[in-house]
Computed example of a mutant assay.
Amino acid sequence: MEKVNRLAAENEVLIISKSSCCLCYAVSVLLRDLGVSPMVYELDQDPEGRDMEKALVRLQGCNTPPVPAVFIAGDLVGSTNELMSLHLSGDLNRMLKPYKAVQEN
């Protein structure tokens, strides 16, 4: 859990991902299309990935696959469903505004 919290604190926008996950890729593309450059951390590339995955399951409080796990400003936003709901409501764009590469006028 400590590593997950540290990564979330160190990165403005973080996606904890698996390289073989198509939903992780879709979330990454969505965030890039919205103007941010998320840090993508691949669990399957880390020897501690299994432990981190278990920590994400505990953090999310469910037994569904824990990736993608999206953090904004150190806070867990959720996975694909939560992110898409925020996007459709317009709230995601507002949440990401401080982290966009080029600020909108």
Rank of each mutant, 00 (worst) to 15 (best):
G74K: 02
S17Q: 11
E42N: 09
E104N: 12
S37L: 12
N5T: 12
V36E: 02
D33Y: 05
V70P: 06
V4G: 02
V4P: 01
E12F: 03
L14F: 06
M84H: 09
S19G: 13
Q45Y: 05
L7C: 05
C21R: 09
N93I: 13
N105A: 13
V27Y: 00
M95L: 15
A55T: 04
M84V: 12
L83T: 15
Y99S: 03
R58K: 15
R58S: 10
N5C: 09
S28E: 14
G90M: 04
I15D: 13
L7A: 01
A101G: 08
A26S: 11
D33F: 12
S79Y: 00
K18Y: 05
L76W: 02
R58Q: 11
V4R: 01
V67R: 00
N105R: 15
K100M: 14
L96A: 07
L43P: 02
E10N: 04
D33P: 01
M84Y: 14
P65D: 08
S79A: 12
G35W: 07
I72H: 05
C21H: 06
L56T: 00
Q103C: 13
K18E: 06
A101N: 09
I72K: 02
N81T: 14
R6Q: 14
M1T: 08
L92T: 09
D46W: 05
T80K: 12
R94H: 09
